[in-house]
Computed example of a mutant assay.
Amino acid sequence: MTDRTSFAPLSFFEYDHRPGSYCLMLTDADMLGVRDVLEEHGYDAGGYAWEGVARSAVRLRAPELEGRVNYDPEAGMFVAYGTDAEALRRLGELLREAFHDRAVLGEFIAAGDPDWFD
């Protein structure tokens, strides 16, 4: 099961090799669309910066997700994963909103701990 539309440009899927474990992913090609917003705040527009966006989104808008989602970004890819599909879907909603609304993205970046973006 792969959902490429509900949280676009992020994809949500269940790992084939690990049923019951889920992933929310944003690739580097998609990150380019909002790179300028991250760079305006002094961050490279990679997976590590998107972890900062995700952590800030959770803190500001969905603190009930704290500890229910794990992160494993790389320079060219953001990944959130875990066994709580509903928590990942909620995070997907928040990140989709941030991606499509530059003011929201800016809010999440500005409110985040700078250590989260490295």
Rank of each mutant, 00 (worst) to 15 (best):
T2H: 04
T2R: 15
T2I: 15
S6D: 12
F7P: 11
A8R: 14
F13N: 07
F13A: 13
E14K: 03
Y15H: 13
Y15W: 15
Y15S: 14
D16C: 02
D16H: 08
H17Y: 06
R18K: 13
R18E: 14
G20E: 08
G20N: 08
S21F: 07
Y22M: 01
Y22W: 05
C23N: 14
L24T: 12
M25N: 14
L26Q: 05
L26C: 06
T27W: 01
T27S: 09
D28N: 10
D28E: 05
A29E: 12
D30G: 14
L32C: 03
L38F: 09
H41C: 10
D44I: 07
A45E: 00
A45N: 01
G46F: 01
G46N: 11
G46C: 08
A49D: 07
E51G: 04
G52D: 06
A54V: 07
S56L: 04
V58Q: 04
V58F: 02
A62C: 09
P63D: 05
E64L: 03
L65M: 08
L65Q: 13
E66N: 03
E66G: 03
E66T: 15
G67M: 14
R68D: 14
V69I: 15
N70R: 14
D72I: 07
A75L: 11
A75K: 12
M77H: 05
V79S: 01
A80M: 09
T83G: 14
E86H: 09
L88H: 02
R89M: 13
L91T: 05
L91H: 10
L91P: 09
E97S: 10
E97H: 08
F99G: 06
D101N: 09
A103K: 10
L105A: 02
L105F: 00
L105E: 08
L105C: 03
L105M: 09
G106R: 01
E107Y: 00
F108A: 02
F108K: 03
I109L: 03
I109S: 04
A110L: 00
G112Y: 04
D113G: 07
P114E: 14
D115R: 15
D115T: 15
W116F: 10
W116C: 10
D118R: 11
